[in-house]
């Protein structure tokens, strides 16, 4: 069992409240997943820049002097904003590959990369994870979150969702995949490597590889139905929106709500209880083996 939430705003006026709304939804899903929690939030884009979210278990030591050291290594133009165990680095987009190589050589964990996406995830109760990163104060256009009850791999930061396997793409999952080892090997043959033993990361890598091969988000999600075996309700985030797909058996719960202001996804209706105008929203259960996505 895990909890998933997602929120896609249709009105810019709500953007400053995105983190607050998502945090309430995430905390409501605590008893579906008390092991770890995470959120991917799509916020402001900086022209010509890329954001890299990193994590360290010893942030004070690792983030001190990082701005200067990374700047020297890649030739300047870096800002580092530490947020608890994470830091968001902003740097020129053409320096992305060099920067990642430098960060990995220092043993820093890459949570995600993108022009608008930031990822925050840690072990612990959703309310504690939300508080340490100040999720409530974050704004943005859309975001997805996850509360994890671990089954397929250890309770660690790297085993927490969302998983990001390409720039501005991420995935959260409720369920368990049974062909993830086989798919991991298939992807490795194509040169796509995952960082953890986790089944969901393979699902994320599968979707990213399909998109890299030219598939649309809809086609990539459609592909999960035939190529991934097991139980899944997936919510995937991209720069422009989010998508939802459930396996044909659809035993993992899912409910959606739409108003003029937003589209919301959750494992259970109670995560919607505090959303504005929910009483008048169109609320429905996504059909099995059917792809839904919203993009701006």
């Amino acid at each position: 069992m895990c909890g998933i939430v997602g929120l896609f705003l249709k009105q810019d006026a709500l953007r400053p409240k995105l983190g607050d709304m998502l945090t309430d939804m995430l905390i409501t899903m605590t008893d579906r997943g008390p092991d770890s929690a995470g959120i991917a939030i799509y916020g402001e884009e900086a022209e010509g820049s890329v954001k890299i979210t990193i994590q360290s278990d010893t942030p004070d030591a690792d983030f001190d002097g990082l701005e200067a050291a990374l700047g020297a290594a890649i030739g300047g133009g870096v800002t580092v904003k530490p947020v608890n165990t994470h830091a968001v680095l902003v740097l020129p987009v053409e320096k992305e590959t060099d920067a990642i190589a430098f960060l990995e050589s220092k043993g820093l964990r890459i949570m995600g990369v993108g022009t608008s996406m930031e990822i925050y995830k840690e072990v612990g109760l959703p309310k504690d994870v939300a508080a340490r990163f100040g999720l409530r104060e974050m704004g943005g256009s859309h975001g997805i979150g996850h509360t994890r009850m671990a089954t397929e791999s250890a309770v660690t930061t790297m085993g927490a969702h969302p998983f990001s396997t390409a720039d501005d793409q991420c995935l959260v999952h409720n369920g368990s995949l049974s062909n993830h080892n086989q798919m991991r090997r298939k992807l490795a043959k194509k040169g796509i490597f995952t960082k953890s033993e986790n089944d969901t990361e393979v699902g994320a890598a599968y979707i990213s590889s399909r998109i890299a091969d030219g598939a649309t988000l809809g086609e990539a999600l459609e592909g999960t139905i035939s190529d991934l075996d097991g139980f899944f309700t997936f919510v995937t985030g991209t720069k422009n929106g989010f998508g939802v797909v459930r396996d044909p058996i659809a035993c993992k719960p899912a409910v959606m709500a739409e108003t003029d202001d937003y589209v919301a996804f959750a494992s259970e209706y109670r995560a919607f209880a505090d959303l504005p105008g929910i009483e008048a929203a169109r609320v429905w259960e996504p059909e099995p083996a059917t792809v839904y996505f919203w993009e701006r």
Binding site: A250, V255, V283, E285
Partner: peptide
């Protein structure tokens, strides 16, 4: 038992 809306699985 009467449900005015939808029922899940």
């Amino acid at each position: 038992v009467v449900i005015e809306g939808d029922a899940s699985q």
